[in-house]
Design a binder for these strands. Structure first.
Lengths: 181, 181
DNA sequence: GGTTGCATGTAAATGGTTACATGATTGT
DNA sequence: ACAATCATGTAACCATTTACATGCAACC
């Protein structure tokens, strides 16, 4: 599942420029489980155009480069729905946060606390944005389902961190207590 | 946080060969939030050796290539603890599963059901392995904390899928119901 | 006066995976 | 007989990010 298919997916929700597609991966509904940068989106869009999977309409703008608005062609929609039927690759997660926390015993307790507090704050902010998202009101069922799952998972993560924060800090602060036990 | 630091982390838990380090990322405690292949581990180990961050002891084996057992040097431990203090990069997740599900309305309901059922089974299997893991009994506090968080999050994910599965399938099967409402 | 947002694009560098090469042993 | 496990390593390939190039408008 490469950037080209990702772009087709975004365009299936309505026409968009490269810049707007980037935003969908940066702040939009896909930001939590996929990402793409300008350096991959613009070439992908040109390739899709050459293959006839998207159509491009240039919108002239004053004092700015022309905005290129892309939309799916019938062929593009076909290719996209076919790609959706493929077996999904395994999820890939890379979390330096969890890796670092795995070695909490090598960190000053204050650092462990800061790391966890930052993360709780991040989850809470994300949850707020996800919960009162206007765009989500009239989203298709799949998008609503996925959004709900994100909320459930982030909430569980935040709650776990809040509940177990102090115990971990106590453990790394006095490791003798664990050995003595 | 590159493969070199990742290797130092694994070695901080005790000496290991390249093959064993791979296993830590494939089945071991890190498998859920970091991954590395032979093609990156072996060169990383050689580089670490050249920099004096790990020591290598060759264990002769009959009918097999010599097993190279690596261990952290004092310098290696220093570099690792310093790396742990750096600000962690943002977590990066790529989930084709969630992306595909976002477009559930383009899929046959049976496919949506299969996708979700497979995923529930996967979470349940992972949870079983995580819950009765012998190695975890005497793990350092950080590793135990991270494992607990993994369990909490996977459990929430599995429960969400189980609870909302039928509603999503109903929604994609009869989209008129949603429009009529 | 500096940063952020809008808007597109290219080229180099990165960092990694996949496939190959080798080969004995053990399990199905 | 075939696959998997153990065990190391290289090279080609890949996708993507980062940095660069350009430039105006609005905000602080």
């Amino acid at each position: 599942m490469d950037v080209k298919i990702l772009c087709l997916g975004v365009l299936s929700r309505g026409e968009a420029s490269g810049y707007e597609i980037k935003k969908a991966f940066e702040e939009g509904p896909f930001s939590h489980f996929h990402q793409a940068s300008f350096g991959s989106i613009y070439p992908a869009l040109n390739a899709l155009s050459a293959e006839g999977l998207v159509a491009c309409r240039a919108q002239a703008q004053e004092k700015r480069p022309d905005k290129k608005i892309y939309s799916l062609t019938a062929k593009g929609r076909d290719v996209f729905t076919t790609a959706l039927l493929a077996e999904p690759d395994h999820d890939r997660m890379r979390s330096d946060f969890l890796f670092i926390l795995s070695f909490a015993q090598f960190l000053p307790p204050a650092r462990v606390a800061a790391l966890i507090d930052q993360r709780i704050a991040w989850y809470r902010e994300s949850l707020e944005r996800m919960e009162d998202c206007e765009a989500a009101r009239c989203s298709p069922p799949g998008a609503t389902f996925v959004r709900g799952m994100g909320i459930a998972v982030y909430r569980a993560a935040a709650e776990y961190l809040e509940t177990n924060r102090d115990a971990l800090i106590a453990d790394v602060a006095e490791p003798e207590a664990l050995v003595a036990e």
